[in-house]
């Protein structure tokens, strides 16, 4: 039953998950509520990164506009709250439907292109949305809006409590990872992965690849919108800056660092990215120099991110343990 535990990446990921599950307890014991914030932030962005990895890692569609969905999700909390509507079901419903709609419209257009063209057209749509919100004075323009009260789920969930928020996000993330696992291993996932490697062949096999890819893009955007819903609640604040292309870029870095080949990679990548940033920025004003060098070294000497590294270590271990099988 626990056969999957025989491979190293799975053991590591299970350990990380277990650690995340007990983290609030540790933080409380150490009376360091700040670290719970940091972890919550990591988990929220991990949701976004996992969603992005669905299109990048499995679908081969590199989007540089994913932060737009975070922004949409967050504004779906902020704008109703601005009008004193705090009902969480409305917020979440809006976040899901608006981000799905945006993904459908922009995806339908963007997916006509490939490669760098796709990167740039997704960026273009995100920038258009960014400038739209910058010009909306009613919602604070570029100053943004403070969210004075978090989404209210009729007493079912009290998101004002940091621990509740943390566990809500954690459960969402775990649910999402399970969904990804099922999705990737289903026929749908195989078609998407097939498109990444050879779209022409998939078409020859009779698949309407455009529709598969569009569906994949919409799923990804919608999930990222949910991450935005959480981020708005968590930061109690929305601003167009959330949709800035540099945030889209950061999401890409997170998944590259974690490794695009696995489902869990982006979670590790997000944690690595944010923890490193937090640690270095406390050291020196010039921390970005070190950060930049780390990014460069990771790629030049890396082996497919953390996930790739674990797989590599695992195969090496196995090879050493059973040398006779190799020959």
């Amino acid at each position: 039953m626990f056969k999957f535990l025989e491979n190293l990446p799975a053991r590591v990921y299970l350990a990380v998950t277990a650690l995340l599950a007990v983290a609030p307890l540790l933080v409380t014991l150490g009376s360091q509520p700040f670290y719970l914030d940091l972890l919550t932030r990591i988990l929220i962005l991990a949701i976004a990164a996992v969603s992005l990895n669905l299109i990048i890692g499995f679908g081969g569609m590199i989007s540089l506009g994913h932060a737009a969905f975070i922004g949409i999700g967050a504004y779906c909390v902020g704008i109703p709250a601005h009008y004193d509507i705090f009902n969480g079901f409305i917020h979440l419903g809006l976040a899901i439907s608006c981000s799905a709609a945006f993904a459908l419209i922009t995806g339908a257009i963007s997916l006509r292109t490939h490669g760098l063209y796709f990167i740039m057209i997704t960026l273009a749509f995100a920038q258009m949305l960014y400038f739209t919100f910058v010009s909306l004075d009613e919602y604070g323009a570029d100053d943004g809006l403070i969210i004075y009260q978090r989404s209210d789920f009729n007493g079912l969930l009290n998101l004002e409590n940091p621990t509740t928020l943390y566990y809500t996000v954690l459960v969402t993330l775990l649910g999402l990872l399970y969904l990804m696992h099922r999705l990737v291993h289903a026929r749908f996932g195989r078609v998407i992965i097939g498109c990444k490697h050879n779209e022409k062949r998939m078409q020859a096999l009779g698949f309407d690849t455009y529709r598969y890819k569009l569906t994949c893009y919409v799923i990804s955007g919608t999930i990222c919108g949910i991450a935005g819903f959480f981020l708005g609640n968590f930061t109690n604040f929305i601003s167009p800056e959330m949709m800035d292309w540099t945030h889209s870029g950061e999401l890409i870095f997170m998944i590259v660092i974690g490794g695009t080949a696995g489902i869990f990679g982006p979670v590790v990548g997000t944690a690595f990215f944010l923890l490193l940033e937090e640690m270095l920025s406390g050291l020196t004003q010039y921390w970005q120099l070190i950060f930049g060098l780390v990014l460069i070294l990771l790629v030049v000497f890396g082996k497919g991110g953390v996930h790739g590294l674990l797989v590599w270590a695992d195969t090496r271990q196995t090879a050493q343990a059973q040398p006779e099988n190799d020959s």
């Binding site: 943004g144 004075y148 109690n236 800056e241």
Partner: peptide
């Protein structure tokens, strides 16, 4: 910056 102040004020 106003936007940084607004974002941080609630905390």
């Amino acid at each position: 910056w106003s936007h940084v102040l607004l974002a941080s004020s609630k905390s």
